[in-house]
Nucleic acid binder design. Structure first.
Lengths: 221, 221
DNA sequence: ACCTGAACACCGTTCAAGT
DNA sequence: ACCTGAACACCGTTCAAGT
């Protein structure tokens, strides 16, 4: 136990931080707790990382680095981008806290730039102008990073909406929100569908993705 | 000064919280500081709000309530939704911290449900099935709330990308990220364009919006 | 009904000091 | 080079107490 204590490093600290967030949630990722996990005092972390912001930046960097270099092989531009975005999604599904954390960062990991460069390359190779490629990048939003904007209850994957409806007076809700009620009744997420939350399930992700890809294909000069 | 001290209320606390966030940033919104702003001790706030989560929930509720009831008058479903979403955007531009805060909430303000009910109503009235209306809602993401997913530097409205390029060795960047460099060179955001950040400017917001609306129009049965 | 003082547990961070 | 103890400023929150 004592003999096994190799010296810390930035990499080891970041890896431990990812594991801690995966197992106990992002709110458990405090300097003191992370240090305890590494059998070290909190202050030791400051030797390897400037401050907590630097820790969080490093954590998203670590996650982004998981976007494996997938083969950009066969298919047209749409299938190539589709592959990439779905690969990114695999990573995010393993780290459900990552989208939220990424949203709070003010600096973009360098890897993200490289990633976006490849996307633009794919578009331009397919005949897009830089102008349209730029707009496409905007339109994609966070889809290249593997997640869609989450509106409804990011924390409660599994649908708080049904739960609320069950608790509250369902008839009253049906009266106040007739269209939503009808829609929800007709549309319950397939429970085998991998999800990052109520509003970001796999099938919806792919629907939005294809809607955008097809719309862009139409605009492609 | 002393005589003007009317008793606190949930509404007054929330209004003060919005002002505090507007003027000093969301990170300045602490129980203690908010209390000081109201010339009261921090503990007094707990009489009106259960805890800080309840405060933050109330703050987003207050912002959402600003989505004025705009006339859903003339035009087809696309122009009606477009009006709504752009009106929401006006609100968010006045509270740039709101999208980020909203992303951290785990419960949806009741007003948001009512808002989405109206959107579904508009779609269904236009001939959408509930199924397609549901998918449309997903595809819209956060656009109905007036903002697009922000990938690049949410905090630095005004473009850290150019800044970084200026600081770093531009030639090296051009080599490492040839397509992005070319794209950025060809595409600089118009500085008169109202923006919530590098990746969420008004023209891009509208482009994405129309791309989705047109794609959905095509799928409409 | 509405507000407060004192206290607690927990943060991130600094600094001088240890090995 | 790498880690630590003590201390500081700042959180959110409780509880019993004031008016």
């Amino acid at each position: 136990m004592k003999a096994s204590r190799q010296p810390l490093s930035r990499q080891r600290v970041l890896a431990a931080a990812v594991v801690l967030a995966d197992t106990h949630g992002i709110q458990a990722l405090t300097m003191r707790r992370l240090a305890a996990e590494l059998h070290v005092e909190a202050m030791s972390l400051y030797y390897h990382l400037r401050d907590k912001e630097a820790l969080l930046d490093g954590v998203v960097e670590t996650v982004i680095a998981e976007f494996a270099r997938i083969d950009t092989s066969g298919g047209d531009w749409r299938t190539r981008l589709r592959q990439r975005f779905l690969a990114a999604r695999d990573v995010m599904l393993r780290h459900p806290w990552a989208p939220g954390l990424l949203a709070t960062r003010r600096t973009i990991p360098a890897d993200v730039y490289a990633y976006y460069d490849e996307i633009v390359a794919t578009l331009v190779d397919a005949g897009f102008s830089y102008h349209l490629a730029h707009r496409a990048l905007h339109a994609f939003g966070s889809l290249p990073l593997g997640f869609a904007q989450e509106i409804f209850s990011p924390a409660s994957a599994g649908g708080s909406m049904e739960a609320d409806a069950a608790e509250a007076d369902f008839a009253a809700m049906a009266e106040a929100l007739p269209h939503l009620t009808a829609m929800v009744a007709a549309e319950v997420h397939d429970s085998t569908d991998p999800t990052l939350g109520w509003c970001d399930s796999q099938v919806e992700f792919e629907f939005t993705l294809d809607l955008l890809l097809n719309g862009l294909e139409r605009l492609r000069g």
